[in-house]
Amino acid sequence: MQINCGQYRFDLTTTDSAVMRSVQQVYGDALLADAPADFAIGLDPGLWLRRWIKPQVNFRCDQHSPFKPLPSSQAYAVLEWGMNWCIAAHEYSRFLLHAAVLVKNNTAIICPALPGSGKSTLSAYLGLSGWSVYSDEMAVIDIDSRQVLPLFRPVCLKNNSIDLLRSWHPNAVITPVCRDTQKGDVAHVKVLSWEHYQQLIPVPISAVVFPKYKHDTELVIYQLDQLDAFGQLSRNAFNYNVLGETAFDIVAALVSNAGLYQVEYSELTELAQFFDELVQP
C-alpha cells in the first residue's frame, strides 16, 4: 500500500492488519495519485523462531534494516520512526531540522526538539486549535527559498499527553497506544485532514522558539542571542554536516531574520497566546 506524506511517498509492504488499519486511520484520506514512491519500505515479521516466542517486527528501507527488531506490538510506532529515518538518511536536497513547525497566518514558528521541550504535546494542542502543524519532528526547508514545506504526518504523543489530549479533544483521531517503546507509551494523533493539507503552502520562518516545560511556573520569555541560536540549530539539523556551506548559509540567515526566544512554561494556553502574538500580521 502507498503512504502519501505530501512531500514524500512510501511504498509499504506489510501483512500486519493492525498496522494497515492505523495507516488507513492516519493517511487514508490522502489522495493516491499515480505518482512514484520515494522509498520502498516494509515491516517484516522477525526470524522464524521469533514468530512464536515474543514476536518481533523489523523495519526495512528497501534492502536495509536500520533498527534492531522490536516487539511487534510497537509496529505502528516503528513504521513512523522508520519513515523519519528514510527521509533523514537520504534527503540532501533540502535542509532538515529536528524541530516542530507550527504555522498560522502563513508564518512559521519552529521549535527545535530538545529533551523536555514538550513540543509534541504543544504541536498536538495547537494543531487541534486553529494552527497548521507542518511537522512535529522535522522542519523541511527549501534550500533556495529558505521557506519551510508542509508535511502530511500525525503528531507523536507520549505517555500522559495521550490521555491529556483525549480529554481536550474526545473526537481526535488517535492510533492505538504502543506500550513500553524506548520513548515510553506512544500514540499518533491526526492533526491535518488531506483537504486542509492541500491548502498549505511553503512559508517563511518568523521565529525560533526553544520551549522548556517547567512545573508550576509563570510564562518566562528570554531573548536568545544569535550565536547561541546558531549553535543550537546547527546541532539539531539532520543534514547540516553533509550540506556544509549551504546549511551554514541557511542557519546564518535564519538566526539573522527570525525572532529567537527561549520560553519556560507550564500552561499550554499561555504559551499558545505568546505564539499567537508572534504570528500577528
Partner: peptide
Amino acid sequence: SCFSDGSGVA
C-alpha cells in the same frame, strides 16, 4: 558570518 546582535561570529 557576523551576527547583527554582536553576539559573535560563525
